[in-house]
Design a protein around this nucleic acid. Structure first.
Lengths: 191, 191
DNA sequence: CAGGTCGGCTAATGACATTAGCTAAAAGCT
DNA sequence: AGCTTTTAGCTAATGTCATTAGCCGACCTG
């Protein structure tokens, strides 16, 4: 029986899993479905990844890195409200374009400081830190501001992605309003 | 064979499911585990609820109602920054005390306008609307402000519940700082 | 081309949700 | 009380999924 090799690798599998999750939803992602997508039998995946939890964490880490890249490039050469808006839009666009891999980042408890997910998540903070630099935030308050930014944008992106906004008023307009809210807040809470 | 009835009801099952989810985590909640907790065989649950998805939605609806109650009572007789802080703390306390049922509210797409989950979620907005009343928000901007509040507090609560804050600075302090940020933002974005 | 590693495979197991169909407990009626 | 009807438990069976064990040929190295 001839069984030519498929040339799989952990990264290929992760990328395919992320893409499939974007298509059918993260919760619908199964090992069997992913294997089929890759033209391979389910157990073959276990030669490269350690099971579904490992796959989920790899997808989450990938998403964190991609988000960091997107927000980073979006804010290049911008400052203040400009940078804030660019970062917010980049994150929101990412979530709308890739709801599956974004969902993978939620509800994951890091296993430890050396967890790839934790590392990627930390790296993802860099661009947001850069956005804050243009505001007059006391150094010891930077952590608070960082957490605030993360909360706000993830909260909005998440609620939109999961259909939390049922009523009719334009969501994009609400998003702009939220950016103004944060911009004003950052200016006046700096002290 | 004598089989005395257990006296189950959809509401009892929902309550037990919510409690169990708080203990072991929402994603670990299974029909079998819940049945065992209730001293009953798994298929018996199907006489009262329509399966796991139905159970999840019932738990989510319960959580929405409970959150609305908690935030509502917490903000009674308060206004402005006081009310804002009370609402934020009530929500955060709820999420920390009941992570399982809170998780049930996330990632659920409402099936329609008559979905109990959607109705409960809408009712959950009332208390937040009340908080906004003390701020000088133009009526046509109320929706934006409401969405902003929801995004901010859910974002923070969620990140904390799922361990998104890995580093050391006191989270409670960050929370107070966030409340100030929103308070200032609401005052200065009102126009 | 001989040998070893390793990536595919089939087969088996076990957890889980769900459905079908039985039976006895409760509830209602005369 | 006795009879009937409804219904809430049950056992048994099915199907989906993740995971493990173990085989065997493909590829690399000499």
């Amino acid at each position: 029986m001839s069984v030519p090799r498929a040339g799989l690798h952990a990264d290929t599998i992760t990328a395919a899993g992320a893409a499939l999750a974007d298509e059918i939803g993260f919760t619908e992602l199964t090992m069997g479905g992913l294997a089929e997508r890759l033209g391979v039998r389910t157990p073959s995946l276990y030669k490269h990844i350690d099971g579904q939890d490992d796959l989920n964490r790899r997808i989450a880490a990938l998403a964190h890195v991609e988000i960091a890249d997107a927000v980073g490039t979006a804010t290049q050469g911008r400052a203040g409200r400009d940078a804030l808006a660019a970062a917010a839009h980049a994150l929101r666009d990412f979530v709308l374009a890739h709801p599956g891999r974004y969902a993978a980042t939620l509800g994951l408890t890091p296993t430890g400081p050396d967890d790839p997910v934790a590392i990627a998540a930390l790296r993802g903070l860099g661009p947001f830190e850069a956005v804050l630099r243009a505001y007059d935030i006391a150094p010891e308050k930077t952590t608070h501001a960082l957490r605030a930014l993360r909360s706000v944008f993830h909260g909005f992106a998440d609620l939109q992605a999961t259909g939390g906004f049922q009523w009719s008023t334009d969501v994009g307009e609400s998003f702009e309003w939220l950016i103004d809210l944060i911009d004003h807040g950052l200016r006046h809470t700096a002290g």
